[in-house]
C-alpha cells in the first residue's frame, strides 16, 4: 500500500524514495537573498518509479541546452533545495566544476546514481543540482551531515566512480552554514584531491 502523494504505477519499478524536480533561474544582477531565491525556485514534478522518472526527464530540456543563470534540482520529496531546510541545515555539498559541454551527460549520470541508491550512505543524500553559469557549469550533491567525514568521503569516492572522473579531478566541499555566511554557493570551498 502506497501512502505517499505520488505512487508507482502497476508493474513499474519503485524508487527507494520519491524525488521532486525543481527549476530556478536568476538574473545575475539581482542579489541572491534567501527570499528572492525561494521566489525564483519552482517545483516542476515528483516521481516515484523508474518509469515515471524517464517519462518526466525525457520531456525536460537538457541542462546543457539551458541558457543564462539556471539550475535543475532533484531532491527527495519533502526536502526543499535550500540551505535553510531542516534536512539541509547541518549539511553540505560536493561540487564538481565542469567545462561547457559536459553538463547534460554528467547530470544524467549523477541522478541515475542517486535514484539507484549507489551512494550507500543511508539517509544522508538530500539531492543533486546542476547549475548552468556563463563560464562553466557546476554539479553538486547535497548531504545531511557535513561533519560526518566517513559519509562525505564515501560520497566523494562514489562520485569519482559513477562519473568516471580522472583521479586528479579537483573536488570541493562546502557546508551550507558557510554558504549562508558568505551568501554564495560556490566561493571559498574546501579543496580535496
Amino acid at each position: 500500500v502506497c501512502l505517499q502523494t505520488v505512487c508507482p504505477g502497476a508493474g513499474e519499478h519503485p524508487l527507494q524514495y520519491n524525488y521532486t524536480f525543481w527549476y530556478s533561474r536568476r538574473t545575475p544582477s539581482r542579489p541572491a537573498s534567501s527570499q528572492s531565491y525561494e521566489q525564483n525556485i519552482r517545483q516542476i514534478g515528483t516521481v516515484a518509479s523508474v518509469e515515471q522518472f524517464w517519462r518526466f526527464y525525457s520531456h525536460l530540456v537538457r541542462p546543457g541546452d539551458l541558457s543564462g543563470h539556471s539550475d535543475f534540482h532533484l531532491f527527495k520529496e519533502g526536502i526543499k533545495p535550500m540551505w535553510e531546510d531542516e534536512s539541509n541545515r547541518s549539511g553540505g555539498k560536493w561540487i564538481i566544476r565542469l567545462r561547457k559541454g559536459l553538463a547534460s551527460r554528467f547530470w544524467e549520470n549523477i541522478i541515475l546514481a542517486m535514484l539507484g541508491e549507489q551512494f550507500m550512505v543511508g539517509e544522508e543524500i538530500c539531492g543533486a543540482v546542476v547549475s548552468i553559469r556563463f563560464q562553466e557549469d557546476i554539479l553538486s550533491i547535497w548531504n545531511r551531515t557535513s561533519n560526518d567525514q566517513m559519509t562525505t568521503s564515501r560520497i566523494r569516492d562514489t562520485l569519482r566512480r559513477v562519473l568516471n572522473l580522472p583521479t586528479n579531478t579537483i573536488m570541493e566541499y562546502k557546508t551550507h552554514n558557510d554558504s549562508l555566511r558568505d551568501n554564495s554557493s560556490f566561493r571559498n570551498t574546501k579543496i580535496s584531491l
Binding site: A10, G11, H13, L15, V50, R55, N109, E117, Q118
Partner: peptide
C-alpha cells in the same frame, strides 16, 4: 529495511522498454 538499488545499466534498459499495461 531492504534498499531498492538499481545500477545505471538497468535504469537505462527501463528507459528503452517502458512497462506496458
Amino acid at each position: 529495511g531492504t534498499r531498492i538499488i538499481y545500477d545505471r545499466k538497468f535504469l537505462l534498459e527501463c528507459r528503452s522498454s517502458p512497462v506496458t499495461k
